[in-house]
Nucleic acid binder design. Sequence first.
DNA 1: GTCTATATTGAGATAGAC
DNA 2: GTCTATCTCAATATAGAC
Lengths: 198, 198
Amino acid sequence: MSNQAARRTRSLSADKRAAILAGAKRVFLRDGFAAGSVDAVAAEAGVGKQTVYRHFGSKDALVEALVVGMCEAIDWSAPPDASSDPRATLRRELNAFVLGLSTPGSVQLYRAIIGEAGRQPEFARLFFEAGPKVIRSRVASVLCGELPDSEASEAAAILVNLALGDAYLELVLGITPPDPKRFERQIDAALELVLPSR
Amino acid sequence: MSNQAARRTRSLSADKRAAILAGAKRVFLRDGFAAGSVDAVAAEAGVGKQTVYRHFGSKDALVEALVVGMCEAIDWSAPPDASSDPRATLRRELNAFVLGLSTPGSVQLYRAIIGEAGRQPEFARLFFEAGPKVIRSRVASVLCGELPDSEASEAAAILVNLALGDAYLELVLGITPPDPKRFERQIDAALELVLPSR
DNA sequence: GTCTATATTGAGATAGAC
DNA sequence: GTCTATCTCAATATAGAC
């Protein structure tokens, strides 16, 4: 009967979809959402343009699928550790965060999100909720053991800000290349300021 | 002879030029450098499109003139004061900085600069040199009287970062509206951390 | 379901009237 | 020097072959 082809009435190739999204990532993060073209995405993905439209319907929908997918894939947290030293835990956590955010893909996504924030507030919110907000609360939860709850939230915000510090603004602006050592120094200085060792 | 018309061989109307730049500012900061059109600029400025091209030659040149002009016009510094209290001076200086950077025009310029940083590094550098870098050194020069020179530069960077804090990221992302009181609280907390009052 | 060829719109840039 | 009308090309989206 129809047991073979029954449920594949509208089945599109998952491989092609992934290839298109990969192409879209390269094109749109390099050229920007406005200047990047569907033609370029199709060429980059090695598929016909019509295939892109079959899968996503429009350029806007493709861009949205890309941004949503990248935001959902964000995971800048450090794996859990057995150590009970909160300073060491915070150092690992903050380090994983800045490294994740320093990735070329993350920097390009960050630029694109900021650049479109005035026109696409949903993208900005999605990114904020998936990234900075998560890190803040992870850091705050560690700090709750060390500081009064009333101070933990504010201290977490300070730590996260200082961990990024100047280095991140300069990285996003393309002034200086990524420098893990510089981030480590910023993190150590931040920890010393918020949780003095003596 | 030619003494009347001699030197106006290539004189264009300064009024029109200013009107075009004002229109370009509205259009490009609202729609982005890529999506904003010269037609829209001409309409916004109330001139013909050809006039735009007579004055600037190309869309790229127009965008560059706009960005350069806005960066050169940046002045987020506080006026000098007679007070000799470095904490009060720093508070005024940092407050003027965050207020200047919170202006709708500044936020939109910041977004556009970040969004194009991967493709237009010169714009990013121009902005950085005219804005953040200037504030850093102003703050550092005040701190030189309070801290060893070796620490003043780093402390200045920390102060500037904490003055912007979470509030600025959320403002740029369009998550929260501008809130001068929140900035003031961030500045006070930052000063207390870097220059404890007791 | 995927590709090639095409319709249509819009934007950058220019020619010519005044 | 400024505007109106136009050229040209690129990009979104679609139609039809396989």
